[in-house]
Design a protein around this nucleic acid. Structure first.
Lengths: 166, 166
DNA sequence: TCCTCAAGGATATTATATATCCGCAATCGC
DNA sequence: GCGATTGCGGATATATAATATCCTTGAGGA
């Protein structure tokens, strides 16, 4: 079980967009150039963010993307679920329905969303713990961490690059 | 991001094996019949459990699998990691290395296992929360839940089926 | 000796992830 | 207006992984 590349890209792009001056945009091409990833494929991830209402796309020259709401109101979970989907990491396929001991009446005890089976309950709790943790961190938290983590020179030149391309 | 079918099968099989009388075995064929899944493919999952030291396979007629240690010392995490691998759900591909503002010296600030980047740190914490939750539940906990969840008739017939096939 | 079983390797099949391309409509600068 | 640019969605190709099967080997019991 592994998260795919576009999730990482989307998180990095959101970090860039969160550092953008108000009202400014950045097009897919520049976001792709900055990260060295294929422009067309990155576009799909950004579209997903747009459909989820996390970013807004503006058409035409000088267009591009910007955050759709304040960066302290966008969490890691928002980004991950926008790109990866909200489906649970564990889906019970109800293999118990093939149990030779199961009578027709007992089929009601099968796993459902409302009444998950014993195994699904545990797996769903773990999934929830994962999401809860991602929900606790916002893009503002990420920016603050980057400011202390990154070398000051890189931080400054990065910001200059962003300003020059937005 | 989604767990694959064999993980679910392995958990169900472990529940069966945990209910086995001491010293008894159950062959792959019966485990596959009970759950209605392909025998050959289920065998791969059971092999993974065997390599992880969770179950022991015995050769020859009347052979099969049994737990390698007490069911209260086998957790959901053990089973999931045996089948799915222990790799983190998020792997940082270090797309920052393509950053046009990055100097050669600053390349040392890239993401490593020892010094993960800001994004990887958050994602790894979430991964850890997920695993911590899975580690808290053992096969004994699962059996107890099943005893209260399942209809008593199904529970009894299931046990009879298990005793007859081990 | 013969049959059964786990184990592992090899391989085929299917699904998904990755990546690209095209047409469309909206938007901006000229 | 007009042409260039951009996000958006659909369609499609390719690469990789998941799923499933087959076969051989060696161990063990009847």
């Amino acid at each position: 079980m592994q998260l795919r590349g576009p999730v990482e890209w989307a998180l990095h792009c959101c970090a860039i967009l969160a550092g953008l001056a108000p009202g400014r945009h950045m097009p897919t091409r520049d976001l792709a150039d900055f990260h060295g990833v294929p422009k067309e494929y990155l576009g799909k991830a950004l579209q997903a963010l747009s459909q989820a209402g996390l970013v807004e796309g503006t058409l035409g020259p000088s267009g591009g993307y910007r955050l759709a709401r304040a960066p302290d109101r966008i969490t890691f979970l928002d980004v991950v679920e926008a790109v990866e989907g909200k489906a649970n990491t564990f889906v019970c396929t109800n293999i118990r329905r093939n149990n030779p001991c199961l009578t027709a009446g007992e089929a009601r005890s099968l796993c459902t969303d409302a009444k998950p089976c014993a195994i699904a309950r545990v797996m769903w709790e773990a999934d929830r713990a994962w999401r809860d943790r991602l929900r606790k961190v916002s893009l503002v938290d990420l920016l603050k961490t980057l400011e202390t983590d990154l070398p000051s020179g890189l931080l400054r030149r990065g910001q200059e690059w962003i300003d020059a391309h937005s």
